[in-house]
């Protein structure tokens, strides 16, 4: 069911589902089934709509964002278009980001960017897939705007004091993607090779791109 549209499985992490989910009929799981069936009975949606939507989401993973980042590392003009208008730059390479506006921010030797949504869990899901649990957690959302350097250190990412931290609180209609710094020693690499260094976490800003 999970067709990876980007033909790049390097970024797909697989974790076990929560043990109590699909095999136990909890109150809210019963509610999901009931609401879905009521909407199908009423002709609001079809079972096929739901199936296709789930498949579409399964097909989205951080490989999409990684492709954009690798392109930006290779093509300065593309990077500039991407920083000016992220949504258009995504469309340009065939990535649909939906109606929300994509803002791309770039890490440099003087600025490190990181993304959070303190109000809910806004996330560039069209480019990274569904967010990890920690991104939606109270601890991450509370602390990232207050003590970003400490939270980043918990992820193993220590940012030097002369590099400014720029936290982006995704509070309204924009979605954010971080372009991590290109690792050294990758001078003659192809786009596909570079994309393999671009992890999901590096595009949220809690990590750097993988070193060579």
């Amino acid at each position: 069911m999970s067709h990876d549209q980007d033909h790049d499985h390097a970024h797909v992490h697989r974790f076990p589902p929560r043990p109590d989910q699909d095999d136990t009929l909890t109150y809210y799981r019963a509610m999901e089934t009931a609401v879905r069936e009521l909407l199908i009975d009423k002709g609001v949606i079809t079972a096929d709509d739901v199936r296709r939507q789930v498949e579409d989401m399964d097909g989205r993973n951080a490989g999409r964002g990684a492709k954009m980042v690798a392109r930006a590392w290779l093509d300065l003009a593309y990077k500039q278009r991407m920083l000016a208008n992220g949504s258009k730059a995504a469309e340009e390479i065939g990535l649909d980001v939906g109606p929300l506006k994509l803002v791309v921010v770039e890490n440099t030797s003087s600025v490190h960017n990181v993304i959070v949504c303190t109000l809910c869990s806004c996330y560039p899901r069209m480019l990274l897939g569904l967010p990890p649990d920690w991104y939606k957690s109270r601890n991450y959302r509370s602390r990232m705007v207050r003590e970003p350097r400490a939270v980043l250190a918990e992820f193993g990412t220590v940012i030097p004091p002369d590099v400014a931290i720029r936290v982006h609180d995704s509070t309204a209609d924009m979605r954010y993607l971080v372009v991590p710094k290109r690792p050294t020693g990758t001078e003659n690499w192809s786009e596909a090779e570079l994309a393999r260094l671009v992890t999901r976490d590096s595009m949220i800003g809690v990590a750097l791109a993988n070193e060579v």
Binding site: P148, A164, H168, S170, A172
Partner: peptide, 8 residues
Amino acid sequence: VDVVEVEI
């Protein structure tokens, strides 16, 4: 130099 940017 650290900042937060928020949509308002």
